[in-house]
Amino acid sequence: MQAKPSTLKVLDVVSLILLGISTYLALVFAPTEAVMGEVQRVFYFHVATAWVGMLGFMAAGVSGIIYLRTGDLKWDRVEIAAVEISLVFFFIAIVLGSIWARPVWNTWWTWDPRLTTAAITQLIYIAYFMLRQGIEDPDRRARFGAVYTLVGAVSVPITFMAIRLFRTIHPVVIGTESAEAQGGFNMTADMRVAFFFALFAFTVIFVDLFWNRIRMGTLADKVEQLKLKVMQ
């Protein structure tokens, strides 16, 4: 058993500290939004977790392609780690979006492009795990997983565009269309600090979790190989 690299140990601690600071900035430092009240504070983590979900989604697609190119099972472990983290963080983002939507739009769920696309991504990833579960042979499992993540990675942006052809009520907070949709708002300087810090903190958290999860996959594969060797 390899000892945990010290860089990773440091990263674990840094992630925790960043999460703490980010929580402080979001809950205490940032001013209360005038129209929506306290619930707007959910926004910082909502966007940050969705961002992590996106990072995981992209990492999964890329590692899927690399796996198909190289056939190296290492990339399969990277892919499954990315999918798992993306699944967890998109889930948080969707729940936070729902919680925000309830007081602001008076509904738990809206068929908004981003929210719906995130939900469909979840379905794709659940299907991904079901697909993997049904296959015994590790090589085939990795190949099918990579093909399916690739198909998902291409279809999700198209899904997003398709849903966006419907009218959206999701507020665009950054950019020129600001505050056009109901529930939008202009960020003050302090809000920006909390917002960008949350993005940064969650990016580091993503790297940390990703690394840990990949190491776990490596260990799991070693255990599997050893099991085969011992059982003979």
């Binding site: 379905l123 794709i124 079901m130 697909l131 049904g134 296959i135 099918f144 899904t159």
Partner: peptide, 27 residues
């Protein structure tokens, strides 16, 4: 062709297929 090579093949295809053909169905 992937679904038929798995253990749960009969139930798996719609679960794999529907979330990725959403754009086709919407359009």
């Amino acid at each position: 062709s992937m679904a038929v090579q798995t253990r749960t093949r009969d139930v798996l295809l719609p679960i794999l297929l529907f979330p990725v053909v959403v754009p086709v169905l919407i359009a």
